[in-house]
Amino acid sequence: MPIKVNLDRVMAERNMSLSELASRIDITLANLSILKTGKAKAVRFSTLEALCRELDCQPADILEFTEK
């Protein structure tokens, strides 16, 4: 998929673990793992909003478009 998820990079910059982020934005660890590994087919605006709020970043920091 040409949309790349840079969640692991942003989390590493903030020194935040996957389980901590999952509990903060109130989604399951399994779903957050799917998002982090790029297996997700879609992201809800509400999830993106929560991620940006907790990680103090912009959507463009998490999502990136790459030509294949």
Partner: peptide, 8 residues
Amino acid sequence: KEENELTI
């Protein structure tokens, strides 16, 4: 169904 399951 798959799309719904993989929508986070």
